[in-house]
C-alpha cells in the first residue's frame, strides 16, 4: 500500500514538473527498493506474530476440548454455541456500547486538551506535556486501575470528600462512570498524543487566513482546525476503541465484574475448564469487529475524492 501511495505521489508531481518528468524518475524507484529491504523485517515480524497468531486462533476456534485436552478435530460446535447464545449477543451489544462510548468520550476530552497544547502553549511547555503523556506508559496500567478502586470505593476518597458536604455515599464502583474511567486511564494519553500530533501538523497559515477573513476562534476551530485534524481525530477514536475492546482490566476493576464484555467472556471460557477453542471463537469475532471498525475509520479518514 505504501508503494502505491509513493507511486501516485511521484506521478502527480511529475505531471506538473518537467524536470522530474525528464530527470528524476528513477529516484522513487530506488527508494521503493530500499523500502522493500527495510520493510522486510517488519513484514516477517507481522507475518509470524500477527498473521500466524490469527491463523492459529481461527484454527483453534474449530477444535474441541476433551478432558482438558485440546483435540484437533474440526467441528463447528464452538461457533454454533457462540451464535446461539443469547448471553453472547447481549454481551456483544454491551461491549460495543461500552467501548464505543469510551472512544468517543476519549476523543471529546482529548481534543480541547490537545488543542490547547498545540496552539496556546510555548514549545517548551508542549515538550514537557508530550513527556508527561508518554510517562503513564512506563507505569503499570494494572496498578493505576487498581488504585481507582480505592478512590471510587463506597468508603473511598471520593465518597469521603462528598461526605464533607453532607452528600450520601454513592455506589461509584461497578457503575458505567467507573468503567469509563477505567478505559480512559488506559488509553487517554495515547488518544491525546495522536490528536496532538495531528494538530501540530495543521497549517497555521490557514487559521490565520480564517481569522483575517473575520472568523472568530470557535468558527476557525470548527471550519479549519477540525477538518484539518480529521485523520488524527478518527485515528484517536480507532485507537481508543481498539484498546478498550481487548481490555480485561477496566471491566474487572472499573466495572467490578458486573459489566461483562467480550474480553471477560474470553477469560471466563478459559477459567471454566480451559475451554480455549470457545475462547478462540469469541476472540475471532473480536478481531473481525476490530478490523471492521478500523477499515471504517480508515475510509472515513481518507475519503475517496470525487472525480470531476
Amino acid at each position: 500500500m505504501e508503494f502505491g501511495i509513493e507511486r501516485k505521489r511521484v506521478h502527480t508531481r511529475a505531471r506538473g514538473d518537467a524536470r522530474l518528468r525528464t530527470g528524476s524518475v528513477t529516484t522513487p524507484l530506488r527508494a521503493s527498493g530500499a523500502a522493500v529491504v527495510t520493510g522486510l523485517p517488519m513484514l516477517a515480524w507481522q507475518t509470524a506474530f500477527f498473521l500466524g497468531a490469527v491463523v492459529v486462533l481461527v484454527l483453534m476456534s474449530f477444535w474441541s476440548l476433551e478432558n482438558f485436552r485440546i483435540v484437533h478435530h474440526y467441528i463447528l460446535g464452538n461457533w454454533k454455541d457462540v451464535f446461539s447464545s443469547s448471553l453472547f449477543r447481549s454481551v456483544y451489544v454491551h461491549t460495543i456500547w461500552y467501548t464505543g462510548l469510551s472512544a468517543v468520550v476519549g476523543v471529546l476530552l482529548a481534543f480541547p486538551f490537545a488543542y490547547g497544547l498545540a496552539f496556546h502553549v510555548p514549545p517548551a511547555v508542549r515538550r514537557v506535556a508530550l513527556l508527561l503523556l508518554i510517562i503513564p506508559f512506563f507505569t503499570s496500567y494494572l496498578i493505576r486501575s487498581y488504585s481507582w478502586t480505592f478512590i471510587l470505593a463506597d468508603g473511598g476518597l471520593l465518597n469521603r470528600f462528598l461526605g464533607l458536604f453532607g452528600l450520601r455515599h454513592f455506589a461509584f464502583q461497578g457503575s458505567l462512570l467507573s468503567l469509563q474511567i477505567g478505559y480512559l486511564t488506559y488509553f487517554f494519553p495515547l488518544v491525546t498524543l495522536v490528536i496532538l500530533l495531528s494538530l501540530m501538523n495543521v497549517d497555521r497559515s490557514l487559521i490565520e487566513a480564517a481569522n483575517n477573513l473575520g472568523a472568530g476562534r470557535v468558527r476557525s476551530v470548527l471550519t479549519v482546525v477540525l477538518p484539518s485534524a480529521r485523520i488524527g481525530l478518527v485515528f484517536g477514536f480507532a485507537f481508543g476503541f481498539m484498546l478498550a475492546l481487548g481490555d480485561y482490566i477496566a471491566p474487572t476493576f472499573g466495572g467490578s465484574g458486573k459489566r461483562t464484555t467480550l474480553s471477560v467472556l474470553v477469560v471466563d471460557a478459559t477459567k471454566a475448564g480451559g475451554d480455549f477453542p470457545r475462547a478462540a471463537a469469541i476472540a475471532v469475532i473480536m478481531v473481525i469487529t476490530l478490523l471492521a471498525v478500523l477499515f471504517a475509520a480508515f475510509a472515513f479518514a481518507f475519503p475517496r475524492r470525487r472525480r470531476v
Binding site: T149, G155, G174
Partner: peptide, 19 residues
Amino acid sequence: QVAGFYELAAIFSNFANDT
C-alpha cells in the same frame, strides 16, 4: 444485592474499603 464479582485480592480490599 450484588456489589461486584472479584478476584480474591479485590474481595479483601473491598471488605477493607467498606464496599
